[in-house]
Computed example of a mutant assay.
Amino acid sequence: MQQAENGGEEEATVDVQFTDLPNALIACKVPEDLFNEGSLKASFEALFRSFDPEVQFQYFRSFRRVRISFSDALAAAEARLRLHKTDFNGKEMRLYFAQSVHIGIGWEQSQDATPVINYDLLCAISKLGPGDKYELHTATPTTPSVVVHVCEDERGDSSAPDDSDQDDKPRPSRPKIIQTRRPDYSPGVKQ
């Protein structure tokens, strides 16, 4: 703060950096008619155009707010100083500085983890024959066991092509896994 003397009186001047201030205001609790009537909207915008002819408006009807963006922070500060808590169409107009949010600076999407392939499980399942089972997880007092069963084939045909060309003895045919039938639909609560 700098001080100067003029004829015995002290006058204080403040050195403010207006580049640190936001260049937008938010008008809160504006009259509902502002969103419907063109003439009311024009008179509202005229209040702010006197501070900056290039001012821009964004209307948020559901929040009953208007964002007023000025070309510089000095015009926004002056408009707030003169118009905050003034009457507009029978309502007290409240103006607040809009905070700027910077999203995405330095942000990078994380890399997806490499999927875990359990080769022991794949090997055990590939060796299962019809009617065999493989226990994935042993039961505990609080959890059930998880067991893979290979179903018997009712028709006797194979679901996979026979890849026994290189072996002298044929491999047992693999049964086809039949999809579990969806339970019958029973209507719940009627609306």
Rank of each mutant, 00 (worst) to 15 (best):
G104V: 14
D163N: 06
S110C: 08
H102N: 15
V116E: 15
S145N: 00
H102W: 10
V147Y: 02
F97S: 03
D168G: 07
P161N: 13
P115W: 02
P183E: 12
Q111E: 15
D112V: 09
G131F: 02
V147K: 04
D163K: 05
L121E: 08
Q109N: 12
D120T: 03
Q179A: 15
I178P: 08
I178S: 09
S126V: 03
K127W: 05
Y96N: 13
Q179F: 05
K133H: 07
V116G: 07
P130T: 10
S186Q: 14
K169M: 12
L128K: 01
L121P: 01
H137M: 09
S100D: 13
S159A: 14
C123P: 01
L128C: 06
A98V: 05
D132C: 04
T180A: 12
Q99D: 12
Q99T: 08
I117A: 09
A113C: 11
E135W: 00
L121D: 10
Y96I: 15
R181N: 11
Q109F: 09
H137Y: 10
S145M: 08
R171P: 03
E135C: 09
A113H: 11
S173D: 12
S110P: 01
D165H: 01
V148C: 00
D168P: 05
V150M: 05
P130S: 11
V150G: 04
I177A: 12
R181Q: 13
P175W: 00
S159D: 15
H149N: 11
E135Q: 09
G104D: 08
D120E: 14
D112T: 11
I177M: 11
S110A: 08
P183Q: 06
W107A: 13
A160K: 02
D153W: 07
G104Q: 13
V146D: 07
Y134R: 02
I103W: 10
I103V: 14
Q166I: 00
E154A: 14
I125W: 06
Q166R: 13
S158T: 02
L95C: 03
H137D: 03
D162C: 10
R171K: 07
Y119Q: 01
Q99R: 12
Q179L: 13
F97Y: 08
I117N: 01
Q109V: 11
L122R: 02
P130N: 08
P170Q: 06
A113G: 07
P115C: 05
